[in-house]
Design a protein around this nucleic acid. Structure first.
Lengths: 141, 141
DNA sequence: GGATGTAATGAGAAGCTTTTGCATTTGTAA
DNA sequence: TTACAAATGCAAAAGCTTCTCATTACATCC
């Protein structure tokens, strides 16, 4: 078990209370994909005295440090997710908002090939599949 | 050559001046990927008396009518692109902002397979590759 | 263990993009 | 041409996110 303090130091960040709390929250909800507002709400519930501005600042720092990934799903807000394990892509239910993760080696390979062919040095990529999950299909009909 | 009036009627929209002007602009700049603000600026340059709110309204209607696609690249704003020809994905240069389009049958197939396997009824998808284009790589070094 | 300098934080204001309300205008169908 | 519904312009408002600045907390050095 790695302490949050240690994790932050390794990322080159001072171990402050807000940063530790936010890291904990992201850690406890690894399956969720949270907006800054979501994180802020949890802090409020826990009676932490941490401002929304700090949440945004910290999440941005985490992103720059590689601790967190930021996504731009349809709808506008940024969504944050703890960077863990390997890269993966996302499939979202447009009805209930559920998010599933997947990896497909073939797609990864093709993307690299496409970038290479065009002479691009690839820095990042994002693939979102939008649809209706099995559960919502049942309810809808 | 199809008139813009006709195009709008076919899409089930009244042929109003703002809608025709905006459609023209998108048509003239098929290679660009414009924000609402971009479109508005062109209207201003052309001395059209069309408000920004109308640009947003019209673009949203065009999207719903299937005339236009809306993208959410990194950075926040929505980007609009005339719906033409087949579906394609995007590769963006993070330095100069250039946007290239590509299609890869294999990736399309894999996406369908992934959605099907998870029981999703797929409604849409987006794939963005971010990188540095050949031109900017030269300049950078 | 305590002082010191720097970096981080909280609160509110500000910035951007996008949407909305409403009075007025415009397009269309009779 | 008339008349009605739909569309528009403007300004205000509503999100989301960032910035400013006075205050506080962390890490380091003694």
């Amino acid at each position: 078990m790695v302490s949050t303090t240690q994790e932050l130091k390794e990322a080159g960040l001072k171990a402050t209370v807000p940063r530790m709390k936010i890291l904990e929250i992201l850690d406890q909800r690894r399956d969720d994909h949270m907006t800054a507002e979501d994180v802020y709400k949890v802090l409020l519930e826990n009676n932490e005295d941490i401002g929304l501005a700090t949440v945004y600042r910290v999440l941005t720092q985490f992103e720059q440090a590689g601790l967190v990934h930021r996504h731009h799903f349809e709808g506008g807000q940024s969504i944050f997710e703890l960077a863990q394990g390997e890269h993966h892509d996302h499939m979202l239910c447009t009805v209930c908002g559920k998010v599933e993760e997947f990896v497909d080696e073939e797609i990864e390979k093709r993307q690299l090939a496409i970038a290479k062919k065009a002479g691009y040095r690839i820095t990042d990529h994002s693939l979102y599949i939008y649809g209706v999950c099995p559960n919502c299909q049942k309810k809808g009909k």
